[in-house]
Design a protein around this nucleic acid. Structure first.
Lengths: 204, 204
DNA sequence: CCATTTAAAGACCAATCGGTCTATATATCG
DNA sequence: CGATATATAGACCGATTGGTCTTTAAATGG
């Protein structure tokens, strides 16, 4: 292994912005407006970067978008890993997981929608980088849900005839559909009741 | 009531294009590309209209889009009215309805997605004309499904504990979610199996 | 034939798009 | 201090945006 030459300490004016924070701010803009409807000035305003800095740091709009999308996915999967943690009761986990969707779907949260669903609808099939991310996200989500359902089944908590993998596919469709219908800003009451009725079909 | 002066017969070169056909062609473009990503030249190519004719007939891009969206909604609701016709067995109707989604979600059809879902994600919350259409479509869809489920319940074909209205809300989320996941072009086999497993939870 | 009406073709418009580049100010090092 | 490195501000670019307008060809009725 070649000796690692220590990175030369940067001299002069230090980097004064946090790239990760900029990605997160950009994510917020793409989330609210969508990819095509987001213009450079929107991103500059949100990240508080100059054009030059933004292009030096991220290359172009598309690359920055992918960074933002990756961040969004990472946050979502991390949340799922917490909600559906193995050490927790799987049914409680699924309830917590769905409660998160109730939250994100009601009122103003619902209006804002979901960056991932919006991206799937806007870009999937026309942008290979996006395609990969969308497909792998849905697979990851399905796997986590299927795992939780398997554990629930092992604990005898699933309704007779429910098979974890296909139930997981159903559940993924259901929650992503909530994100679509959520754009009409349904009340929390209705969202919660719908989720409860859904779980009643699968949980004993 | 004032005497209706008969509309003066048009003289000169007759209208040589069919506005409804143009709307339908425009619908196809918006459907494939989304609102923002559709540029005027795309619409001119698809409708085979000149710029002048298109603006004279439809006003502007946004108005043409609304016409296209209305057409899309009308087609979808007409199809539902056939599939869920009162004179038909409601369970058969629901199966036919879901079979349509299997078809639209698999492979290339899935990749193309759904104009309504794409529009909801791209424009809802930022375009009042769109908001109204999206909300009223989901309500109309929910009402038709709830009606079919009510008839199924009356015929004793629903699983115990299934309440038609909330089951309809679940089903709407499920099918719209299929449209999202469908962007990853799942196989027909999996889509069909998922739909079957879904119905098994509700139909006795 | 001729008047009238329509559609097509495409020039034209200001505004905005994503992206590059230069000049300047500033912060930190030796 | 002086050299170096970085970020900012904003001018600038060609391409494209949605939209208007003018010119020309064509089709019909009187």
């Amino acid at each position: 292994m070649p000796r690692q030459t220590p990175a030369p300490l940067p001299r002069g004016r230090p980097r004064s912005f946090d790239a990760e924070a900029a990605v997160e701010r950009a994510m917020g803009v793409f989330w609210s407006r969508g990819y095509h409807a987001t213009a450079l000035p929107d991103l500059l305003r949100a990240t508080k970067l100059s054009r030059g800095s933004l292009y030096a740091a991220f290359g172009d709009k598309h690359s920055l978008f992918l960074r933002a999308l990756d961040r969004y996915v990472a946050i979502a999967l991390t949340r799922m890993d917490i909600e559906l943690d193995h050490r927790r009761d799987p049914v409680d986990g699924l309830r917590a997981y769905l409660a998160g969707y109730v939250d994100r779907n009601s009122g103003a949260n619902g209006r804002r929608g979901c960056l991932l669903v919006a991206t799937a609808m806007e870009l999937a099939g026309r942008d290979a980088d996006v395609d990969r991310r969308i497909a792998s996200f849905f697979k990851a989500m399905e796997a986590r849900v299927a795992d939780a359902l398997s554990r629930a089944k092992a604990a005898g908590k699933l309704t007779d005839g429910v098979e974890p993998l296909s139930a997981a596919r159903i559940l993924v469709c259901f929650v992503e559909g909530m994100r679509v219908v959520g754009k009409t800003a349904p009340t929390r009451i209705i969202s919660q009741a719908t989720v409860d009725a859904f779980l009643d079909r699968f949980i004993r």
